[in-house]
Amino acid sequence: MIRGVRGATTVDKNDGEAIIEKAHELMLAVIKQNDIKAENVTSVFFTVTADLDGAFPAKSLRKLEGWTHVPVMCMQEIPVPNSLARCIRVMVTVETSRVQEQIQHVYHYNAKQLRPDLRS
């Protein structure tokens, strides 16, 4: 079955190293908590809020062995008034035997407020 695994994190400032570091930390947690193997990943989509343009969060995957050929794309979130600032979101589309309720979505730092019902 193909499933989507969500995650989100925040950074303190629009800094390229911070963006890549927090995206990397987020991806490590998503991978570990869902036992994801790169060869089972269809694609990864990152989004960032308009206040983050210091780096592409997709660069964080270059630090992961075996992820070189996984298709990755970065996009900008729609600018909804009063939305969470300095936020990086990710959607990993993966082939897995887990049922929907077994997927562990990951929310770090200030992004925990986005989905308190799915905290991990």
Rank of each mutant, 00 (worst) to 15 (best):
M1L: 04
M1T: 14
I2E: 14
I2D: 09
R6A: 10
R6P: 00
G7I: 10
G7W: 03
T10V: 06
T10Y: 07
T10D: 01
D12M: 03
K13F: 07
K13V: 14
N14M: 03
N14Y: 01
N14A: 06
E17L: 11
A18W: 09
I19V: 14
I19M: 13
I19D: 05
E21F: 15
E21L: 06
E21Q: 12
A23R: 03
H24N: 11
E25N: 15
L26S: 02
M27P: 02
M27D: 05
L28M: 09
A29G: 01
A29P: 00
A29K: 12
A29H: 09
V30S: 05
V30T: 08
V30L: 07
K32W: 02
Q33K: 10
Q33W: 10
D35Y: 05
D35W: 02
I36P: 07
A38M: 05
E39A: 11
E39K: 13
N40K: 14
V41S: 02
T42E: 13
S43A: 14
V44P: 07
F46N: 10
F46Y: 09
T47K: 09
T47N: 07
T49K: 03
A50I: 06
A50P: 07
L52G: 04
L52Y: 06
A55Q: 05
F56L: 14
F56W: 10
P57W: 04
P57K: 01
S60C: 07
R62H: 09
R62E: 12
K63W: 08
L64P: 00
E65Y: 09
E65C: 01
G66V: 02
T68V: 12
H69Q: 12
V70L: 02
V70P: 05
P71C: 04
P71K: 12
P71Y: 11
V72P: 02
V72K: 07
V72S: 02
V72T: 11
M73Q: 13
C74A: 13
C74T: 15
Q76C: 05
Q76N: 08
E77C: 11
P81Y: 04
P81G: 06
P81D: 08
L84A: 04
L84I: 11
L84C: 06
R89H: 05
V90I: 15
M91H: 04
M91D: 08
M91L: 15
V92P: 05
T93Y: 11
T96I: 06
R98E: 11
R98H: 12
V99M: 09
Q100I: 04
Q102P: 14
Q104R: 13
V106N: 00
V106S: 01
V106W: 01
Y109H: 13
Y109C: 06
K112M: 12
Q113N: 10
L114M: 13
P116R: 13
P116S: 08
P116H: 10
L118Y: 10
R119G: 10
